[in-house]
Design a protein around this nucleic acid. Structure first.
Lengths: 345, 345
DNA sequence: CTGAAAGCGCTTACAG
DNA sequence: CTGAAAGCGCTTACAG
């Protein structure tokens, strides 16, 4: 087992100084062509590659991005990682991924683990528990230590940093409007509890759309799911009101469950009940009927987040030290019509 | 913006040497209780955390695991990452994730990027292109430089290292047997091209089961998909043979596509055509009918792979330098019966 | 043109 | 009990 070769070894072997080797390999004009070529040839032969860790220590930057997300077994987040990774790699960055599993403590632990020099900055989406507690000290601490943070999807106003989101309120609004245009009159909403930022915003969009169209705005039509264990019972209860003719669900799982329970209750989707889901993932494409969705382009969100973070890192490097102008980028959504809303199925 | 505090700064502030600070913080018995407590209090106040990069350089190990997979937007792989991450975190390791996107070049690039000291070892699943080329020099190189590698799922005999797999051949065999027991007589196989290791093994299992039961073993019944673009046409062609009464598909996508095309061709699943898929993912659970699968426990595979890698890393550290006893762990699979094979739907 | 020195942030064997 | 020195693997300003 041949250990990785270092500058020191090459220097010894060639009987020159470490500085000379280093400069030769970096094509410094200081070095005579003769030694330069000799060193380069030798380095190539021994497949020399500079040690990243040493470089990181020297340069005080690691060229790696820390990503902290609630969950990876979730099509949307996987998709975001994919976008981040792609963009990061193009710019010579690696990506280290940590999962909070929706836990505040693990999110904090993960950040601390990475904030000690392992990473140049963070891209993250808040865990549910963090949103519930409203405790963001770990993030603000990282930022105050000079680590840029970009938040996406589940963000908060209590942290000043760059953000990448969709316009949740508008998207929900438009989804409801589309249902109204199809002639739907009693539209229910399946949302998360309010402390989940995107759930709250989507609820606001829904509410506004209902109001703007003088439709019945009843609390009973808004179901807030705290834990997935209560999903089935709450949806079943909702569906007992047979006058409901459409449901907007804030994610695919809620939508597919609604469709299943509706069918069991003898309702026909989309004729008796139209359904639209947020997040255009795998489930919507393959369930029967296929589900109409508000697409959230995770790839684009990931790419954008990575680009924003890298830009900030590079600016910092130039000493630009911009006067903390944080931006919030809004990624477009699209309403994708599928069988769960088309009348002729 | 307060930069992170270092030993040097603490030493200066407290007017002691760096060594004294370092030892105090590591609770060295060498140091008087007095200074020790003073230093510790000060460090706590300034929220001192040792710099990981410096530690990595000093200790010549990074406590991070490099994971290279073909794709992350793929339930199975996301699931494996989840298992790896969980196990790694428990042992104090971070996980950096790289995606090859099924490309040989990117796989090589990713490995080189991480092999230069960023990572203590690798967990990986081969890209399709790598399997096609049969070129594993990048992996063997990493191993020869002392970086342990654990391969999972898509593995090769041309690399000597620890491996985590399922018994693809046996699982395929048993899936076919279960179809036979249901009275199916003309069973087709939807596989990948043979250079994908798992595709080949599953094809072998299928073949053996057909032979063992004296069923027709016809080349026409084995369809090998190279690129997803040819999926629809090849499956449609297969289904023209109306005497086929069951299909084993090597992944969910192939299965769900088969079901869709079968339905379009007027066939009823499962009565006219039973379908079993490999990989128990999201699609199988939510499509209609739900799909019977050979479960591949990705979480377990990830955990196992991480445990094997970490064990090797720690053994190495103890200088045990075991005489290269590589192990191949086989993770159990289960046949999960759902609507696509149950007769009463 | 070449090399010794200092430094990135830490640890630890060794002197005193 | 405390601290100076060496070292992990690199880069670069500075001497010569």
């Amino acid at each position: 087992m041949k250990r990785k070769v270092t500058l020191k070894q090459i220097a010894k072997e060639l009987d020159v100084s470490i500085s000379t080797v280093s400069k030769s390999l970096r094509d410094s004009a200081e070095i005579s062509e003769d030694t330069r070529l000799k060193v380069q040839a030798f380095a190539k032969l021994y497949n020399y590659k500079p040690n990243n860790i040493a470089l990181s220590l020297k340069n005080r930057k690691t060229k790696t991005i820390g990503v902290i997300i609630p969950e990876i077994v979730h099509h949307f987040f996987a998709t975001v990682i994919s976008g981040i990774e792609q963009m990061a790699n193009e710019s010579g960055y690696s990506v280290v991924v940590c999962l909070s599993n929706e836990s505040f403590d693990k999110e904090v632990l993960n950040m601390e683990m990475l904030a000690n020099g392992s990473t140049d900055g963070f891209i993250m989406s808040l865990s549910k528990e963090t949103q519930l507690k409203g405790d963001f000290h770990h993030i603000n601490e990282a930022i105050s230590q000079g680590m840029p943070v970009v938040m996406f999807d589940r963000v908060t106003n209590d942290v000043l940093c760059d953000k990448v989101i969709i316009d949740d309120k508008l998207a929900a609004y438009e989804a409801v409007i589309s249902l109204v245009k199809m002639g739907k009159r009693k539209i229910a909403l399946l949302s998360t509890v309010d402390y989940v930022s995107v759930g709250k915003l989507r609820t606001e969009g829904y509410t506004k759309a209902i109001r703007d169209n003088d439709l019945p705005l009843e609390e009973a039509l808004i179901v807030r799911i705290g834990d997935e264990s209560e999903l089935d019972s709450k949806v079943s209860a909702l569906l007992e009101d047979r006058s409901i003719d459409a449901v907007l669900a804030v994610n695919e799982l809620y939508a597919v469950t609604t469709i299943k329970l509706a069918r069991e209750a003898g309702l026909q989707v989309p004729n008796d009940l139209s359904v639209i889901a947020f997040t255009d993932g795998i489930i919507s494409q393959y369930s029967t009927p296929t589900i109409s969705t508000v697409s959230q382009n995770g790839i684009k969100m990931g790419e954008k987040a990575a680009r924003m973070l890298i830009e900030r890192l590079e600016a910092e490097e130039l000493g630009v030290e911009e006067e903390e102008q944080y931006r919030t980028e809004v990624i477009d959504t699209q309403l994708i019509a599928r069988e769960s809303t088309s009348v002729n199925t």
